[in-house]
Design a protein around this nucleic acid. Structure first.
Length: 892
RNA sequence: GGGCACUUAGCUCAGUUGGUUAGAGCGCAUGCCUCACAUGCAUGAGGUCAGAGGUUCAACUCCUCUAGUGCCCACCA
C-alpha cells in the first residue's frame, strides 16, 4: 500500500497533476452522438486583464459545473478565450509606446496595430495561464480570441446582415464622448456616478432695443461652457413667469448670438428658474428640442474636449473645464452672473478611464435594437432562458423593454474595422446611403459608378459587437460545423451582474437573430467579490487580494473551496485573507483522514467486488449510519449543483466529511479497524467522497485517489474521468440517522459531565445507564463498545438501576446516565447545573403544552406536526421528571 | 426619481415550499501535543432573528410600513 506523505504540500502536486490531465486530453470534448452534450462558454476575460478574485470565483464555479457534468457522463465542453478589449488594450499599448517616446499618431495606424498584436502575443495570454493555475478544465485547444480570423469573419458577416435588414444605420446624434480616449461610447460604457457639482444661474438679456436690454431671463446650468453652443432658451408654455416674453428674442451673453425663445412642455417649471438654455449639439434633451423646433446645432468642442472655433475667440483651445472657469469670470465681470449653488447630480464617466463623458453630437454607426429585442424578450418571458437567482429576470426585462439603439462605432484603431467603404464619386449624391458600399473586403471599384477611389470607414466596432456572438462564433459560425450543431445552445452561462446588459442581453439577441434560438438555457449570476469593508475590489483602490498570492499561500484547492463555501447563491462576497484558512484546513483534514485510512487499509480486503456488502448482515449500526449519511449528502450535493447553490453543496460535503465521517465514524471504527466490513466501508466512503469532492478540490482529491488501491471497475487513471457516484437510495435511512443522533447526544452528555467535573481525560470512569424503553436499550446494547470508547468508560452498566450514591447525572431522552464520583462532586454546583437544565426544558414544555391545548392548532395543523409535538412533550415530561428526581436525590 | 438586495451569536455569514430544541466558520472560555490531523481533539458560553403592525392554529420565513446599509438603472438642465 502506498502511503501518503505526512504533510500535504499543494505546490508539489498541482502543476504535475495539471500537466498529466492536459496531456491525457481529459479536457477535450468533441461531438459524440452516444453522449449528451453539456457546454458552457467562458465569459472572455480581456487580454489586458490579470486574474482577480472575481475571475477566481467565476471560473471556479464553471469548473465545478464542468467537472460535475463530465463525471455524470456528459460530453462536457468548456470553451475558453479572451476578448480584444479595444479601448483598454489600445490605451495600454499607447501608454507603453509613450514611455518609449513614441506617439500613436506618429507611428501611423498600420504600425500601431502591429504593435498591439505584438503586445498581445507577449502579454495577452497571462490570464489563460492563470486560469490553468486555478485548475480550470477548459478545452484549451479550442481557445478563441475575438480578433481571430473566424470570429472576425463572424463579426463582418453580422454587420453585413444587419445592414442588409436595415438594422444598422449611420447618423448624427448625441452620443457619449470620452475626451481622453477620444472615442464614442455606448450608453452602457458611460457609467453614472454622483458628482458634487454646481448649478450656475446666468442672465440672458432679452433683445429689446426700446428698453435697452434691461429685461432678462435667468437660466440655470451645470455646464456653463456649453452655453457657447446655445441657440435658444426654452420655457414651459404654462409658465406665467415668462408669458410676457413669448415670441421675443434673447441675446446670448459673451457671443452676442441671437437666441429664439421656444415653448415646450418638457421644461420642468420647478427646476432652476424654469428657463432652460438649449444646446442641441451637447445635450440629449436639447437635441430633441432642437429637432422639434428646427434649431441650428452648434458643436463647440474638439475631440479632446477643448473649445473649437465655434466657441468664440476668447475660449478657443481651452479645455472644457478651463473654459467653464473663464466663462464664469467673464460673466461676473459683465454682471450677468447671478449665483451658483452646490448641486449633486449623476454624470457619465468613461468605463475605461473614468474621465467625465461629454454628451456630444457626432456622426456614428448604430444598431436598431427594438426588432432584435423582441425575440430575446420572449425567450426569457417564456422561460426558455432562466436566470438564477430569478430576480435578475426583472432587471433584464426592464432593460430590454426600454432598450435604446446601440452606438457601435469607435474612433480607435484596435478592433474590427467597420466593413463600410465610401466611393468618392458617389458620395455627393443625395440619400443617406450615398456612396456607401458594405463589404467584407475592399471592393476594387464602385459597383455603381465604377470609380476606383474607395476609402474604408476609419472606425472600428465596439468590442461587444464581437463578444455578443461568442456562444456561436466560437463554434465556427457562420459555417455549419459539427461542433456548432452539437454544442449549441450551451447549457449555462456563469457571469457577474455588471455584465448583464453589456453581454448577456446582447448574446441572447444575437442568438435569436442569427441562430434562430437561445444561446444558453440558464444564466447564473454570481455575486461581486468585495473586500472586508464592502468595497468592490479594484486595482486602483489597492484593496485587491490576489488569487495567485492566495494560491501560493494556501493552495489552489483551498482557494477554490473557501471562496465557494462563503458565497451564497448570488450574494456578494466580503473577502478577507483569513477566509482562506477554511479551505486550507479542510484540505488538510481530508489529507490526514485519507492518510489514516491508507495506513490501516489492507488492499486484499478491499479490492473485491464491494457493492455486495450493502445487502449483508455484516453491516454494523455505525456502518449503516455512515452510508446513510454519505448517500444523503451525495443526493443533496447533486441537487444543490443543479440549482446553482454551490455553497450549500460545499458545506454539505464539509459537514459530512469532517463532522460525521472523521469525528464519529472513524473514531468509532478504530476499535474494529481490521474487520473486513470496516475496511470495505472506510475505503468505499473515502473513495466516493473524493469523487464527490473532486469538482471542488480537484488537485488534492486526485493526489489521494491516485494512492488508493484500484477497483476493477475504474476506467481511466484519473479521478476526473470517474463516474459521479451513484446514489443508493435504499441505504438512506432517517431512522438510523435519528438513532445515531441519540447516541451522539448521550456520549456528548457523558463527556460534558467529565468536563464539568474536571475529570482528567486519561482517567477512565464508570457509568450507569438507566434505560427504560426497550428500543433505546437495544440501540445502546448493540453499541456498547464504541460508547465506552468514545466516552472513555471502563465499566458500563445498562438496565434498571437506582441512582448510585454521589453521582453526577444527565438525562437524554429516556435515558439517564450516572457517573459515580465519590468525593468529587460539589453538590450545590451539580444542583445548579441540573436545575438550569430543567428550567430550560420546562420553558420549552410550557410552550408546547399551550399549543396542545389550543383547539385551533389541534384542528388545523397537519397531523404529523401535532404528533411530533405530542411526542416531544412526553419526552420533555420524562426528562424533566428525572431531572427533578435527581435534584431531590442530591438534596438527601 | 425608479428598481433590487441586505439587516440573524463578539465578527463574517447560512437558514430549503411557514411547523420539533434557529446553524456554521472565525473569535472567546476551559481541558487536552490521546499512536491521521495543534491547519487538530473535547466541552462550553453567547441570539426578543433591525423596529412596528398585519395574515395564520403557527412567522426568522408571507404582506404592509419605518429606519439603516449597499448596489443597479435614469436625458430635471
Amino acid at each position: 500500500m502506498t502511503e501518503l506523505p505526512k504533510a500535504y504540500n499543494p505546490h508539489d502536486v498541482e502543476d504535475r497533476i495539471y500537466k498529466v490531465w492536459e496531456e491525457k486530453g481529459y479536457f477535450r470534448a468533441k461531438p459524440d452522438p452516444k453522449k449528451k452534450p453539456y457546454s458552457i462558454v467562458i465569459p472572455p476575460p480581456n487580454i489586458t486583464g490579470i486574474l482577480h478574485m472575481g475571475h477566481a470565483l467565476n471560473n471556479t464555479i464553471q469548473d465545478i459545473l464542468i467537472r460535475f457534468k463530465r463525471m455524470q457522463g456528459f460530453e462536457s465542453e468548456w470553451m475558453p478565450g479572451t476578448d480584444h478589449a479595444g479601448i483598454a488594450t489600445q490605451n495600454v499599448v499607447e501608454k507603453k509606446l509613450y514611455r518609449e517616446g513614441v506617439k500613436r499618431h506618429d507611428l501611423g495606424r498600420e504600425k500601431f496595430v502591429a504593435e498591439v498584436w505584438k503586445w498581445r502575443e507577449e502579454y495577452g495570454n497571462t490570464i489563460i495561464r492563470q486560469l490553468k493555475k486555478l485548475g480550470c478544465s477548459c478545452d484549451w485547444e479550442r481557445t478563441r480570441f475575438t480578433m481571430d480570423e473566424g470570429l472576425s469573419d463572424a463579426v463582418l458577416e453580422v454587420f453585413i446582415r444587419l445592414y442588409g435588414k436595415g438594422l444598422i444605420y449611420k447618423g448624427n446624434y448625441i452620443i457619449n464622448w470620452c475626451p481622453r480616449c477620444m472615442t464614442a461610447l455606448s450608453d452602457e460604457e458611460s457609467q453614472h456616478k454622483d458628482v458634487d457639482g454646481m448649478l450656475y444661474y446666468i442672465k440672458y438679456p432679452v433683445k429689446d432695443p426700446e428698453r435697452g436690454g434691461e429685461d432678462h431671463v435667468v437660466v440655470a446650468t451645470t455646464r456653463p461652457e456649453t452655453m457657447l453652443g446655445d441657440v435658444a432658451v426654452a420655457v414651459n408654455p404654462e409658465d406665467g413667469r415668462y408669458s410676457h416674453i413669448h415670441g421675443k428674442t434673447l441675446i446670448l451673453p459673451l457671443l452676442n448670438r441671437e437666441l429664439k425663445l421656444v415653448l415646450d412642455p418638457v421644461v420642468d417649471l420647478k427646476f432652476g428658474t424654469g428657463a432652460l438654455k438649449v444646446t442641441p449639439a451637447h445635450d440629449p434633451v436639447d437635441f430633441e428640442l432642437g429637432r422639434k423646433h428646427d434649431l441650428e446645432q452648434v458643436n463647440v468642442m474638439n475631440d479632446d474636449g477643448t473649445i473649437n472655433s465655434n466657441g468664440g475667440e476668447d475660449y478657443v483651445g481651452l479645455d472644457r473645464f478651463e473654459a467653464r472657469e473663464a466663462i464664469i469670470e467673464d460673466l461676473k465681470e459683465r454682471g450677468l452672473f447671478v449665483k451658483s449653488e452646490p448641486h449633486r447630480h449623476a454624470v457619465g464617466h468613461c468605463y475605461r478611464c473614468h474621465t467625465m463623458v461629454e454628451p456630444r453630437l457626432s456622426p456614428q454607426w448604430f444598431v436598431r435594437m427594438k426588432p432584435l429585442a423582441e425575440p430575446a424578450i420572449k425567450a426569457v418571458e417564456t422561460g426558455d432562458i432562466k436566470f438564477y437567482p430569478e430576480r435578475w429576470t426583472k432587471v433584464y426585462l426592464d432593460w430590454m423593454y426600454n432598450i435604446r439603439d446601440w452606438c457601435i462605432s469607435r474612433q480607435i484603431w484596435w478592433g474590427h474595422r467597420i466593413p463600410v467603404y465610401y466611393c468618392e464619386q458617389c458620395q455627393d449624391e443625395a440619400g443617406p446611403a450615398a456612396g456607401v458600399i458594405v463589404s467584407k473586403t475592399k471592393p476594387a471599384k464602385c459597383p455603381k459608378c465604377g470609380g476606383r477611389e474607395i476609402e474604408q470607414d476609419p472606425d472600428v466596432l465596439d468590442t461587444w459587437f464581437s463578444s455578443w456572438l461568442w456562444p456561436f462564433s466560437t463554434l465556427g459560425w457562420p459555417r455549419e460545423t459539427p461542433e456548432l450543431k452539437y454544442f449549441y445552445p450551451t447549457n449555462a452561462l456563469v457571469t457577474a451582474q455588471e455584465i448583464i446588459f453589456f453581454w448577456v442581453a446582447r448574446m441572447i439577441m444575437a442568438g435569436m437573430e442569427f441562430m434562430g434560438g437561445i444561446p444558453f438555457r440558464h444564466v447564473y449570476i454570481h455575486g461581486t467579490v468585495r473586500d472586508a469593508t464592502g468595497t468592490k475590489m479594484s486595482k486602483s483602490l489597492g484593496n485587491i487580494i490576489d488569487p495567485l498570492d492566495m494560491i501560493k499561500k494556501y493552495g489552489t484547492d483551498a482557494l477554490r473551496f473557501s471562496i465557494i463555501s462563503i458565497t451564497a447563491q448570488g450574494q456578494d462576497v466580503f473577502l478577507s485573507e483569513s477566509k482562506f484558512e477554511l479551505g486550507r484546513n479542510f484540505a488538510n483534514k481530508l489529507w490526514n483522514a485519507s492518510r489514516f485510512i491508507l495506513m490501516n487499509l489492507k488492499p486484499g480486503e478491499v479490492a473485491a467486488d464491494l457493492c455486495v456488502v450493502y445487502d449483508t448482515a455484516e453491516l454494523s449500526f455505525a456502518d449503516r449510519w455512515i452510508l446513510s449519511r454519505f448517500y444523503s449528502t451525495l443526493r443533496s450535493v447533486g441537487k444543490c449543483l443543479d440549482e446553482y447553490k454551490f455553497n450549500e453543496a460545499a458545506n454539505a460535503i464539509y459537514e459530512f466529511f469532517w463532522h460525521e465521517f472523521c469525528d464519529w465514524y472513524i473514531e468509532i471504527v478504530k476499535l474494529s479497524i481490521d474487520r473486513k466490513t470496516t475496511q470495505v466501508i472506510l475505503y468505499k466512503v473515502l473513495e466516493k467522497s473524493l469523487r464527490m469532492l473532486h469538482p471542488f478540490m480537484p488537485f488534492v482529491t486526485e493526489e489521494i485517489w491516485q494512492k488508493l488501491p484500484r477497483e476493477k471497475d475504474h476506467e481511466g487513471d484519473s479521478i476526473m474521468v470517474q463516474p459521479w457516484p451513484h446514489i443508493q437510495e435504499k441505504m438512506i435511512s432517517k431512522e438510523i440517522d435519528e438513532k445515531m443522533g441519540r447516541l451522539i447526544e448521550l456520549i456528548t452528555a457523558i463527556r460534558n459531565m467529565r468536563a464539568v467535573w474536571n475529570i482528567e481525560p486519561q482517567k477512565a470512569i464508570d457509568v450507569v445507564l438507566n434505560v427504560h424503553e426497550a428500543g433505546g436499550s437495544k440501540a445502546i446494547s448493540e453499541n456498547i463498545e464504541f460508547i465506552k470508547r468514545l466516552a472513555r468508560i471502563t465499566d458500563l452498566k445498562i438496565g434498571k438501576f437506582p441512582k448510585p450514591k454521589n453521582s453526577a447525572a444527565a438525562v437524554v431522552k429516556d435515558i439517564e446516565a450516572y457517573v459515580p464520583l465519590e468525593g468529587l462532586i460539589d453538590f450545590d454546583k451539580e444542583k445548579a447545573r441540573l436545575a438550569k437544565e430543567a428550567a430550560k426544558l420546562t420553558n420549552e414544555m410550557n410552550a408546547i403544552s399551550g399549543r396542545l391545548q389550543d383547539e385551533n392548532f389541534l384542528s388545523k395543523a397537519p397531523e404529523d406536526v401535532v404528533g411530533k409535538q405530542r411526542e416531544r412533550k412526553s419526552e420533555l415530561e420524562l426528562q424533566i421528571k428525572k431531572l427533578r428526581e435527581n435534584l431531590e436525590n442530591i438534596a438527601k
